[in-house]
Amino acid sequence: MTIWNLGSINADHVYALPHIPVPGETLAAHMLTAGLGGKGANMSVASARAGGKVKHIGAIGPEGGWMLDRMRGYGVDTSSVATLDTPSGHAIIAVAESAENMIILFPGTNRRISPAHVDTTLAAAKAGDLFLTQNETNLQVEAARAARSRGLRVTYAAAPFEAAAVRAILPFTDLLILNEIEAEQLSKETGQGPGSLGLADVIVTLGAEGCLWFHGNEESRFPAARVTPVDTTGAGDTFTGYVLAGLDAGQPMPEAIRLATRAAALKVTRHGAADAIPTKQEVLAFSPG
């Protein structure tokens, strides 16, 4: 099968600072790192590194070719990423010595994907394939509807959380993945808990406490591996990508979740986003302390 991921592609510029600057302050950074990011790209890379066949649907600007090179190097099919005449999405991330951070996100081409491009791409999808999307592009609802009509299983990662976006896409969703805070926000908006949304499957990630899986009337808890984290960026994206790859390979959901929790635990022991996502071989060889 194939995982079709309508998702963001961002260049992450991370500046290490003594503290977060206040308005009007000029502050010199003592280190700059640049890498591949964006929730969509992170999830595609995670699925590919887990052994999944991933086709990314998105857009970059004329300066973004290096990001596609990086994604292809990790095994992602980028043939359905359009190149537009406006700047790519990017994030300016300031990280203080205290680990406090500040992020400025420019959506860029991630919000300029055309309906025709999505329709043409999904025309090649087959019933039984998987479709994945998040909240960092346009056309999530339209694409989810089209994917469902073609017999694809739709997964929605509800981040960054937007109540209206979640409400709009839930009718076309089979698997919902969200973190504990997002689950609380959704419950306040809908008056329903994760297990009463009427979806086939809901996964609520709990960080260091693992995750909960709601399936029908059943609720299952999966513990997380115990590690000492150095950077939690992209951990949830790694988890989601690994779950999708497991399902794509025909694994039962519990098996896919167990490997995904190990992958996310290994990811947080590394600095970076997409570039730090582990391979399946690394996850299988991983021995948590």
Rank of each mutant, 00 (worst) to 15 (best):
Pro223Arg: 04
Val227Met: 08
Glu219Gln: 15
Ile3Asp: 11
Ser88Val: 12
Thr120Ser: 08
Asp231Trp: 09
Lys53Asn: 08
Ser114Phe: 10
Thr228Asp: 05
Ala265Trp: 12
Arg153Tyr: 14
Thr269Tyr: 05
Thr155Ala: 15
Gly51Val: 12
Gly289Ser: 10
Glu100Ala: 15
Val118Ser: 11
Gly241Trp: 10
Gly210Glu: 11
Ala11Asp: 10
Leu105Met: 14
Ser98Cys: 06
Asp129Asn: 11
Lys188Gly: 01
Ala276Trp: 08
Ala123Gln: 15
Lys280Thr: 09
Pro23Lys: 00
Ile113Glu: 06
Ser47Cys: 12
Leu284Val: 06
Ala99Phe: 06
Glu209Tyr: 02
Gln134His: 06
Gly198Asn: 05
Ser220Arg: 15
Ala168Tyr: 03
Tyr156Ser: 01
Ala99Tyr: 03
Phe214Tyr: 15
Gly61Trp: 10
Met1Leu: 09
Pro229Glu: 04
Ala264Leu: 06
Met71Ile: 14
Glu182His: 00
Val14Asp: 04
Thr190Ala: 02
Thr86Asn: 02
Thr155Tyr: 02
Pro115Met: 07
Asp231His: 06
Thr261Asn: 14
Ala274Asp: 14
Val54Leu: 06
His215Arg: 14
Leu122Ser: 12
Ala50Ser: 12
Pro23Met: 05
Gly216Lys: 07
Leu206Gly: 02
Asp119Ser: 13
Glu136Lys: 00
Glu180Val: 01
His30Arg: 06
Asp201Gln: 14
Ser44Arg: 03
Pro278Ala: 01
Ala48Trp: 12
Gly216Ser: 06
Pro278Lys: 00
Asp248Ser: 11
Pro107Leu: 08
Met1His: 08
His271Lys: 14
Met31Ile: 01
Val204Lys: 07
Val45Cys: 09
Arg72Gln: 15
Ile103Arg: 00
Gly151Tyr: 00
Val54Glu: 07
Trp66Lys: 11
Ala249Gln: 15
Lys126Cys: 14
Glu142Gly: 01
Met253Gln: 07
Thr155Ser: 15
Ala50Thr: 09
Phe172Asn: 07
Glu184Gly: 05
Thr232Ile: 10
Val45Glu: 11
His215Leu: 04
Ala168Asn: 08
His19Thr: 11
Pro62Thr: 04
Gly289Leu: 12
Val202Met: 05
Ala34Phe: 08
Arg112Asn: 14
Gly37Pro: 10
Leu199Asn: 03
Thr137Pro: 13
His215Ile: 04
Arg148Val: 09
Tyr74Val: 04
Ala225Asn: 09
Asn138Ser: 03
Leu212Ser: 05
Ser196Lys: 15
Asp237Thr: 07
Arg262Phe: 03
Ala273Ile: 13
Asp85Ser: 13
Val14Pro: 03
Asp275Arg: 01
Gly75Phe: 14
Asp85Ile: 03
Val54Thr: 15
Leu122Pro: 09
Lys39Gly: 01
Thr232Asp: 02
Ala143Val: 12
Val166Lys: 00
Arg70Met: 10
Ala263Val: 04
Leu178Gln: 10
Glu63Tyr: 02
Val45His: 03
Thr120Lys: 13
Pro171Val: 03
Ala276Ile: 08
Ala29Tyr: 14
